[in-house]
Design a protein around this nucleic acid. Structure first.
Lengths: 171, 171
DNA sequence: GAGTACATGTAAATTGTTACATGATTTA
DNA sequence: TAAATCATGTAACAATTTACATGTACTC
């Protein structure tokens, strides 16, 4: 039920429509949790039914604005503090990196090189953006913290890839 | 369809039953991909139907042994080299770490401390085991590579947590 | 002979993906 | 007025989880 709580947290700062929420979710949860646009509407409906969110306004173009209720705030805290985390991991990038060991030298090196290229292309603008944020935002800003975490994960992955390339080359 | 290929790769080294496979999968794919025991049987059936694996023997206690076919080897290579990776991430541990920013100071510090404890408890024996492996195994052994990657991810996460604790404390 | 570990599954519910449907408002 | 963007959804399918069902062989 992580999506439910990720949506709840994204809605926390103030009233938003499903459409706005989806865009903000992509930004804040980048590298942490992924959801399709249409999943937002379903989660908002379920959160509303459970009393954790409520519709506060209807705008033009059928726009519906929601906000978190006090019960929603409690639920988010309860989930973070009292519910035992589900620590299962499923990461296709990491899986692929691992399975490179089943390939022959040439294929392995070219797949590792491609992966390195893609991850570097994600990391570099992220680092630049974080340097910029560091000057303006408060240090515990959730978006900045999320991006910092993503950057560290990418760096760990890139370090491993560099090491893997060296090992394969030495074969 | 990552599970399909993760299972295929785990079956690659030699004939195994679903039961053996599930245990090996837990070991090799630890920190990369998680699957329930009963998912193995389903995937083995689908791999067999697709011609990527075949049943080679029936043993005691209804034990069925499978092995990868040449078509299965080709399919694994094709997936790694030619199929565009699905880079979506869903990681509840990371999500929780991020959402800690919605908690008040006391709750935030206690959740971060708990997380640090759990991750350290996973990392330490892993590092010890890897030091041991380094003396005996070949450097491109897939299990060792997978565990090394997991260790680096845990270290990145722990570094981020230490930083987050400092930032929260400075509030 | 009782308990543990081996060994394979099925059914129902939930979650996530893909493709489609529908219409409103703004901008060029 | 045509195109882009806003805005919300539904239906069918695939993947995953949870709970259950069934029986076998070894070990104390």
């Amino acid at each position: 039920m992580s999506l439910r709580h990720a949506v709840l947290a994204t809605l926390l700062p103030g009233p938003q429509s499903g459409y706005d929420l989806a865009k903000k979710f992509d930004q804040v949860m980048r590298g942490v949790w992924y959801a399709r646009r249409n999943q937002m509407y379903g989660e908002l409906a379920k959160l509303t039914e459970a009393g954790f969110a409520e519709e506060v306004a209807e705008g033009p173009r059928g726009r519906r604005t929601y906000q978190v209720t006090p019960a929603g705030r409690d639920e988010l805290r309860r989930w973070l503090v009292d519910v035992e985390p589900d620590r299962t991991v499923r990461d296709e990038s990491t899986l692929r990196a691992l399975l490179v060991s089943t390939l022959d030298r040439g294929d392995a090196l070219s797949v590792l090189a491609r992966e390195e290229r893609v991850l570097t292309a994600e990391l570099e603008p992220l680092r630049a953006y974080l340097r910029e944020l560091a000057r303006t935002e408060r240090p515990t800003d959730p978006q900045a913290m999320g991006l910092e975490l993503r950057a560290r994960m990418l760096e760990a992955m890139l370090g491993w890839i560099a090491d893997a390339r060296r090992r394969v080359q030495a074969t």
